[in-house]
Amino acid sequence: MKFELNPNNQVCSEVQRRLGEYIDNTLSGREVWDIERHLAACTECNMVLAQTTHTITLLQHAPLQDTGVDFMANLHSRLDTLGPVGGRRTIRDMAADLFMAIQTHLVLKPVRTLGMGVAALGAAALMVTVPAALHTRVPAPLAGEVISQENLDRHVAVTASNPFDDPVAAKLEAEASGPDIGSRSTTE
């Protein structure tokens, strides 16, 4: 595409739309050529180019922030209460892993995994009825809180959904934070 000088500025806005990619050096040689030809003759686009370049340089040189000196100590004392890496293995965790494995297979082999799904549902139902003594999470909050927080953790960590529009996260967050959080949805 060729950029000609144009009184209604459509060409300028097209050039300006691509200046970021021009600066990032992600355009083809032909596109670079076209843009530079236009830049050679257009004061306004040159101004925008200079400002954009300067803005990007500022961002790239913004001073890096780092955590406070006691970050690691604080983190480790929190991790100490959570048990081994991955958290304490409860039967619910194993059930969740089973579900995860099934989900993965489901994409490839829908028919065969249907039976597995039914089996897993049965297993999970059984596990929920297993006495609470097996769930040795420390400190021990209410069982409902643990489930909500675990669900939320798992969801936040592995979800493929768009975090900006994530009703599941919002719902889990609400469950995990209890009733006294300000931003409750009105539909409950």
């Binding site: 955590t67 890496v85 991955g86 953790d153 960590a157 592995v158």
Partner: peptide, 18 residues
């Protein structure tokens, strides 16, 4: 600082599913 702690706590809890 809090949110960074929380990020690594969640990573710690969920690393098996990574």
């Amino acid at each position: 600082e809090d949110l960074t702690q929380e990020t690594f706590v969640r990573a710690y809890l969920s690393i098996r599913s990574f």
